[in-house]
């Protein structure tokens, strides 16, 4: 299944990565080569196999419901490119 440019552009949009036309063309080639190579997995018979999501075969651990964190507005926002009055600031969002 060869990817066309529109698909590459759509995927880039989903991933929020700006690509110019030349980059779209380049990644179209790269992605097609990579996906072609990945196709070889179809040779493996996996009919009776459960997908393996984790190598650790056990249940997730759980935390006690205790407040142990927070109260660090400065530390949370100190790396922000734009912050004001304790908020993160972004270009206006229109709903």
């Amino acid at each position: 299944m060869a990817l066309d440019k529109a698909t590459v552009a759509h995927v880039a949009k989903l991933a929020r990565i700006k690509l110019d036309d030349a980059e779209i063309e380049k990644y179209q080639g790269d992605l097609n080569a990579i996906l072609d190579w990945m196709e070889q997995l179809n040779e493996v018979d996996t009919d009776s196999v459960e997908p393996m999501t984790a190598v650790v075969p056990r249940a997730t651990a759980e935390r006690h419901d205790v407040v142990t964190d927070g109260g660090r507005q400065d530390a949370v926002t100190e790396n922000a490119p734009d912050a004001a009055h304790g908020y993160f600031v972004v270009p206006k969002v229109v709903e």
Partner: peptide, 21 residues
């Protein structure tokens, strides 16, 4: 938004795309 590089854009999505691009 919260750390690292930001490349501004006219909308939130544009800012995301510019930054990540």
């Amino acid at each position: 938004v919260r750390f690292g590089l930001r490349v501004e854009g006219d909308s939130l999505d544009e800012m995301y795309e510019n930054t990540r691009g």
